[in-house]
């Protein structure tokens, strides 16, 4: 990966603090993300990783701190605004519509780009149909890319976990994001599925130049695919750097040994 060129700082998080009642989920966390890089967030269970992603795309409002996206300050990011600004994400607990087909789920990711009004949609013929076909073509590209052609009509609820994760990724990709936030995209997968997923993530990063921020527990995977790593523990940042630097960091080692990983 070393030969790749990173761009400017695209996302800069400054002194983020977030608490729920008495639980301090994040304490004064700062780090940045460069354009086109794969940035990993690691840490033991309950460290605050998911909360961090939720802050980035506005699901949680931090009590303190500043989020700078492409030079713009977003003290109060809201998730709709984040989606419009080109952030897409997948979820730790898959949040797909179980009853809808894979295709429809992915189409949902296109909703920001669809413009037909309600009346046109009710009439269908004309604008709505044209638009639907246009976006369908785009979605089919993503389906091919992620190799899920064979299940496009299957209701998501009937799919095995690993495939659901892939559909979740497909929907995020359908948004054509500039920054992709992935919350444990490989949890619960076998080695083969993990390899596939790694390949997809790297391909997205390569081909579309998408910046990736991902949370992952599998250290092997993290070391393989990420350019830089942030380490959280009990809501605090205890390490930040390239995989090798992080691996050599005594705080990180002790946190992981302490948490018996």
């Amino acid at each position: 990966m070393s030969g790749r060129k990173f761009g400017e700082v695209i996302l800069d998080l400054k002194n983020i603090s977030l608490s729920f009642g008495g639980v301090k989920a994040l304490q004064d966390i700062s780090f940045n993300v460069l354009e086109h890089e794969v940035r990993a967030i690691i840490g033991p269970n309950g460290a605050g990783k998911s909360s961090m992603l939720n802050v980035i795309n506005g699901v949680y409002r931090p009590q303190q701190g500043d989020i700078i996206l492409r030079g713009e300050h977003h003290a109060n990011m809201d998730s709709y605004g984040a989606a419009k600004a080109g952030l897409a994400r997948t979820f730790q607990n898959i949040a797909l519509c179980k009853g809808m087909s894979v295709l429809d789920n992915i189409m949902t990711g296109r909703n920001l780009k669809m413009k037909a009004n309600m009346l046109q949609q009710a009439i269908w013929f004309g604008a709505a149909q044209r638009e639907e076909l246009e976006h369908r073509a785009k979605v089919e590209e993503i389906i091919d890319f992620l190799e899920i052609q064979h299940i496009r009509k299957t209701p998501v609820g009937r799919l095995p976990y690993g495939l659901q994760k892939r559909v979740d990724l497909a929907r995020a990709l359908a948004m054509e994001p500039q920054i992709l936030l992935l919350d444990e995209p490989m949890a619960g997968m076998n080695v083969e599925e993990k390899q596939d997923m790694c390949r997809f993530i790297l391909d997205v990063n390569d081909q579309f130049g998408t910046t990736v921020v991902l949370i992952e527990h599998d250290m092997g995977v993290v070391m393989d695919i990420s350019d830089r790593v942030v380490v959280l523990d009990y809501g605090k940042k205890i390490g930040d750097g390239t995989p090798d630097e992080v691996r050599a960091n005594p705080d990180v080692i002790s946190a992981y040994l302490g948490a018996s990983h």
Partner: peptide
């Protein structure tokens, strides 16, 4: 169409729906 998918997303995913740009 798109309208129905948005409704169903609200039904099935709730908070997560805003993240994919559904108001």
């Amino acid at each position: 169409g798109n309208m129905g998918r948005q409704w169903m997303a609200i039904r099935d995913m709730d908070v997560a729906a805003t993240v994919i740009g559904i108001r």
